[in-house]
Amino acid sequence: MSEIDISLEIWRQKDSLASGVFETYSLQRISTDMSFLEMLDVLNEQLTREGKDPVAFDHDCREGICGMCGAVVNGIAHGPEPETTLCQLHMRHFKSGDTIVIEPFRSRVFLPIKDLMVDRSGFDRIIQAGGYVSVNTGGTPDANAIPVPSTTAELAMDAAACIGCGACVASCPNGAAMLFTGAKIAQLSLLPQGQQERKERALSMVAAMDNEGFGNCTNERECETVCPKGISIRNIARMNSEYFKASFFS
């Protein structure tokens, strides 16, 4: 273990209406074993002791699965390490003397709440538009009644691994939510359980996505590069064809 001194430039915004500014802080003797969020905890303890307002940021599980945390670190959503959420990023990836710029996820849809916190409820509304199989509790057939080839199940699982963190939108130069939406459409269009509503789902989820104000995909591949779960843009390709088929052949 070693220790580093760093300086931070963090976006500070009091509330959704206030205009934000970057504030600079310096932190001494930060253990390289700390996670990025623990480093922010240390900063917040320091700010609290100085009687200042701590930096608000979203976080919960701190093991890379809840999708609550996220910020743009030195220009990259969730920081420089591939397939890593902010909470799983460790300070050993930074050097003493580094300046780390921390900005909230930005998009027209992800409205700022405070500091690094943004509103990602647009994602929920996309799922509400059709990211489910309409089946009530009870009365379902035996789990083994419909076989699913293991390769199909694996592909569906690849898509289903999405944690809804919003890094795809934040990193997309167009603020598009196609990776998020595509992953859910792909998951359910692959599985036999999703077939009944396959077309309706593609139509309504894409409509909801557009309606929220997310941008258009121009295949920049930023989303899959920053995705902490390594979700492939193949899922976007699948959504494109699902949507086409649903529009013309339903």
Binding site: E103, R106, F214, E222
Partner: peptide, 16 residues
């Protein structure tokens, strides 16, 4: 698309 992300990042970097 320009409107979908009205506010730019201070550090402008591409991951891909």
């Amino acid at each position: 698309n320009r409107k979908a992300r009205p506010q730019k990042y201070k550090v402008h970097k591409r991951a891909f």
